[in-house]
Every structure is written in structure tokens, then in C-alpha cells.
Design a protein around this nucleic acid. Structure first.
Lengths: 128, 128
DNA sequence: TAGCATCTATTACGATTGTAGGTGGATTAA
DNA sequence: TTAATCCACCTACAATCGTAATAGATGCTA
């Protein structure tokens, strides 16, 4: 698996690493809001599993605690996520966009940004 | 669960019902491409589970075969899907859009359509 | 009506995910 | 040095999903 599938909780753990640099399990755990924070060993289990999936690795040790760092990029993980998501819709963008808009998740600004990004991107591709 | 979470395969099954009206298991199974089509009993199992989740129900019988019909709308299911998906991104639209565009999933036309839909929608809301 | 085809219903199993307890070793604070 | 913490590691377990086999009932056909 070059790009392992990550669950929501796994994503949240990776997010801690992506945002906060190499962290110990305890630190990862504490990035969760107190309300509904998973147990230390729950985080630990997920970290171990992410290690098996090669999504992160032990970078070094401080005292007897391991410090973990991400091995896959946020971008790559998100790409995978988006792909799976689109797969759910049979790869058709249209219903996805419609849904996003109707649910009010997508604002005028989001669309404007998208437009700009598209323009920039097509320009870059022409240049290259 | 008013809106049960549906997996990809479950979605595909519901899709058959949404598109093709009430169907028997055999008919649902046959909506899958020959290549990689799941076994009859696999579809059967999923249909039974969808029944437990109240996503569909037995509408009537033809011979000894049950005919199933959807109980939840495609729209509602997709809404749930999108919500979960956004939850994966912490609810932030921006990285989602960026990802979609950079991966080339989103075309100029998609964005134009989105724009139009947004305009129509905001108009409707003003009118109401 | 006998037999074949088809369907239903039940059961099973491995993988993944979320959840966490327990045990024992390492660190640290007193 | 000893007790309180903290951490690592292992094990467990329920739920969900995808996969399907098997067995028994029903219906269609010759």
C-alpha cells in the first residue's frame, strides 16, 4: 500500500503530526479536545497501527517515550481520501458539487477561489 | 439512526434501487458489471443488512422472490456521505476544493455549474 | 410428478476500526 | 532509595464490512 487508507481517527492523529511536528503519544492524545478525548492506550493502538501501515515512524526517543513523525504527507493522504470519496459517487463530480452547494457547505467565496485556482493551474500547465 | 452510514457497496446497491425502481436481489446483482460482480449471496447479505438499517424494505413478492424498494432517498444518503467526508477534513472546505482541483477532478465547467447553482439558490432564498 | 433452477434463510470468517484494560519496566520526585 | 508516575507492549473485544457457502423451501418445466 503506497497510500494506505486512513480512517477518521487515524487522520486526526496524522493531523497532529502534520501540524505539530514529531510528537509523543501523550502529546498526540492531548491534541484531542478534552470532551470525548480517547484514552491514552486508544491513541497508542492507533499509532502502532499507523506504524504498521508505514504512515508514521518512530523518529527518536526522549526518556523512555518514543517520538513519532509522519511518513506520508497530508497532501497524499487527502488525495487518497478524495479519491475514495469520489468512488462512492461513481466518480461523477456533478452530484458531489450539487450536494455541497445545496447543503450550504460551499460558499460563493469558495467557488471564486476555486475558479482562481483553476485559472492559475491551467496557466501553469500551459507554461510548462 | 435516521440516516444510517452506507458503505460503498451498500451505496451501489441502493443506487440500483434509486435508478431502477423496486428490484429483486438477482436484478440488483446484475446491475454490477460482469467483471468483479459479487456473488448472489453477497448481494443478498448486504440487502439484508440494508433492511436492518431501514435503508430499504421488502415491497412485495413475485413468485417466491422478494422485491425490494429504497426507504431513504439518494439525496439523504449523499448528504450523509458528504457530511462524513467533510468531517474527515475537520469541516474545512478549502483543502477539499484545492484537492479536487489539483487532482483534476474539478473542471472549469464544474465550477461554472457550481456558480450558476449558487446564484440560483441564493435567488430562490431571497424570494422565499 | 419428478427434477432442475431459483430463492430464502442461516451461518461463518477474515479484515478493519474504535475502544481500552492489564502488566511490567523506566523515570522522576521526595 | 522508594514510591508515585509514566510509558511500552500485549491482549481483548464488539461492531461493521465484504465475502460467500450451505441447506432447505418453492416454483417452473417436461
Amino acid at each position: 500500500m503506497r497510500l494506505p487508507k486512513l480512517s477518521k481517527l487515524e487522520l486526526q492523529i496524522m493531523d497532529a503530526l502534520w501540524s505539530g511536528g514529531p510528537l509523543a503519544i501523550r502529546e498526540i492524545q492531548e491534541t484531542f479536545p478534552q470532551k470525548g478525548r480517547p484514552a491514552y492506550t486508544t491513541v497508542q493502538t492507533m499509532v502502532y497501527r499507523l506504524e504498521v501501515k508505514k504512515a508514521l515512524r518512530r523518529a527518536r526517543k526522549i526518556g523512555n517515550a518514543h517520538i513519532f513523525e509522519a511518513l506520508i504527507s497530508r497532501d497524499a493522504a487527502q488525495r487518497r481520501l478524495v479519491d475514495d470519496f469520489l468512488g462512492m459517487f461513481g466518480g461523477r463530480m456533478q452530484p458531489v458539487m450539487a450536494q455541497l452547494i445545496e447543503a450550504g457547505n460551499l460558499t460563493t467565496k469558495d467557488v471564486a477561489d476555486a475558479e482562481k485556482l483553476l485559472r492559475d493551474l491551467s496557466k501553469k500547465r500551459k507554461d510548462a
